[in-house]
């Protein structure tokens, strides 16, 4: 019992700390591409994916972990994650984004989490479960190991993963040399830069990737063979308050991970003097609650949110997770276009 609490909570605190310092949010990463033409966070996301991919591959080669990619659920992944993508733009944050902002004191994120908790639990085990089961009936392959980019090419996972990382890093270095950007000015001591200032995209991506690497064997040791995930942890927290579900079922690694994220983000925000209870208008609270509700439903239908599929699934080269990631991006772009790009272009 205790090791689960310690490792889940510990990884969560590190994750929450890195999320808050790096302002790492996939909603902003995807949405900013079309709305603000800002590519800082998408670079962070890419670095995190490549770091985790390299780490997972090395851990497979050293027999530290066995990868556990999610299967392809055609309708579940595409429809569920598309709805998730719509929801996160409305909620103003992805699953990890709204979770760490709870620790920053943002009340709009708290209502988004509440919406996510309710619908995720109802979709996992409540009256929305038949909808999820119907969407998840088209599964490929129906039995056996999940399809990955590696199995598609008939290559062993670690070699495929390391190959992708090497090619991506080489391409990136070449591209970065072509369009040199001005580096952000560095000021103050190292401690100041870690605890007081926001991190740059490169250290943020590496830190998040490393947390994902550390999470995999620790979570596996607790009997849950998967790296980071958000939605399942919130479902387990919700089940704690439901009398019909035995408590021991919910006291799991992914639940402590969530507690840790909120604590880690709160500690980071307090040290940097960024903690404050921020209450938006009540209409915004309803908006984020509704967005969170769409996210909870979509994530459970797709068997994962942006963390379970994008941050944890894509580095395992799961094709189902790649489809889910694509659907999240498309859902977020469509919503961002309707909510922000079109109104801004019309002049007011």
């Amino acid at each position: 019992m205790t090791p689960i609490i310690l490792s889940g909570l510990g990884i969560g605190i590190l994750f929450g700390f890195a999320l808050q310092r790096g302002r790492f949010c996939m909603n902003s990463a995807f949405r900013d591409i079309v709305v603000l033409k800002d590519y800082t966070l998408i670079k962070s996301v890419t670095v995190a994916l490549l770091t985790s991919m390299a780490g997972f591959a090395i851990m497979v080669l050293t027999n530290t972990i066995t990868i556990n990619p999610k299967p392809i659920l055609w309708a579940g992944n595409l429809v569920g994650s598309f709805i998730f993508g719509i929801g996160m733009v409305i909620a103003g944050g992805c699953a990890s984004g709204i979770t760490y902002r709870v620790g920053e004191g943002m009340v709009g994120a708290m209502t988004a989490v509440l919406g996510l908790m309710i619908t995720a639990t109802l979709t996992a085990s409540g009256f929305l479960a038949p909808v999820k089961n119907w969407l998840q009936q088209w599964k490929y392959p129906t039995e056996g190991a999940s399809a990955t980019v590696a199995s598609l090419f008939g290559v062993d996972y670690p070699y495929m993963a390391l190959g992708i990382v090497v090619v991506a890093v080489i391409l990136w270095v070449i591209l970065a040399r072509r369009n040199k950007e001005e580096a952000a000015p560095k000021q103050g001591s190292l401690l100041n830069r870690i605890f007081k200032q926001g991190w740059g995209w490169l250290p943020t991506g590496i830190a998040i990737g490393l947390v994902g690497i550390a999470a995999f064997p620790l979570s596996a040791a607790s009997g849950r063979n998967y790296p980071l995930g958000i939605t399942s942890g919130w479902v387990k927290i919700t089940q704690l308050v439901l009398p019909s579900v035995p408590t021991e079922n919910s006291l799991k690694w992914d639940m402590w991970l969530i507690v840790g994220i909120v604590v880690g983000a709160a500690v980071a925000a307090l040290i940097a003097k960024e903690f404050k209870f921020r209450v938006p208008k009540w209409t915004v609270l309803i908006q984020t609650f509704f967005g969170g509700a769409l996210m909870g439903f979509g994530a459970v239908c797709s068997t994962g949110c942006n963390i379970g599929h994008v941050l944890s699934g894509i580095p395992q080269l799961s094709i189902g997770s790649l489809l889910a990631g694509l659907a999240i991006v498309l859902g977020s772009w469509l919503t961002a276009y309707l909510m922000f790009v079109r109104p801004m272009a019309s002049g007011d």
Partner: peptide
């Protein structure tokens, strides 16, 4: 734009600057 959720602080500023 205090208390506003992502990305309204940026959006409101950019549309105001535009005018």
């Amino acid at each position: 734009v205090k208390g506003k959720i992502c990305p309204y602080p940026d959006m409101d500023t950019m549309t105001t600057l535009k005018k």
